[in-house]
Nucleic acid binder design. Structure first.
Lengths: 114, 114
DNA sequence: CTCGGATCTGGAGCGCGCTCCAGGTCAAGC
DNA sequence: GCTTGACCTGGAGCGCGCTCCAGATCCGAG
């Protein structure tokens, strides 16, 4: 069984327009088409879209994600993949650190006004 | 002593154009002017710009920051301030959670390819 | 006094990440 | 067959957060 665009959007929480956009940008798919040209999303597609939107929510840009997709799909030596992934991980941890600094400031202010 | 725009930009790591933009948007200042109309940043200004860029780095939008500035400056009851600050804090922690989910995915992939 | 570099203003331009639209196609229900 | 609604494509439009530009002004060094 496969899912219509509307169903896939519903399942993933990503709008139909955005799904098409992601496909154009090479972040997902290419999605299989029916005889009439309509997209038919598989469960695997849904899972992959979930990964992509997880990273989007974490603040990665489209270009970053394209690199990520390329690494996970293409035949790069595992060593290179791991290096790439670690690099991304470091970038995300820096974001976490930035958030903690901001939270620290908020905590100070909260303490001050409490 | 006060700082020229260039010096303030240097101290804060925020570009001159962005400093003017933040001022227009009401995130900082208004900055004191010299007789000739040039901006003169104080140490307090520099400190405040640091706060603003801390929140920007944490991913808050300009509108969010405007709200933040309004709360810290205007005469709102402390109770309201604290409520606002806690709300912002929650939002930031949700971002942290999103980042941790993404980092978790990366860790899985790293483990898989290692 | 002159020169040149820093700064001023208002407004245009840009990259990102969608979001929306027009005009056309496909397919299930009557 | 006809209607209706979901879907198709290519491209325009939009909000955000800067970033850049033109043309004018200021001011310290020589």
């Amino acid at each position: 069984m496969s899912l219509t665009p509307a169903a896939a959007a519903d399942r993933t929480g990503v709008s139909i327009d955005t799904l098409r956009y992601y496909e154009r940008e090479g972040l997902i798919g290419p999605i299989r088409r029916s005889g009439g040209g309509r997209r038919e999303y598989t469960e695997d597609d849904v899972f992959w879209i979930g990964l992509v939107s997880c990273f989007r929510e974490a603040g990665l840009g489209i270009a970053d994600l394209r690199g990520f997709v390329a690494i996970l799909r293409a035949e790069h030596p595992p060593q290179e993949r791991v290096a790439f992934l670690r690099e991304r991980r470091t970038a995300l941890e820096q974001r976490v650190a930035a958030l903690h600094r901001a939270i620290g400031v908020l905590d100070d202010k909260i303490a001050y006004y409490s």
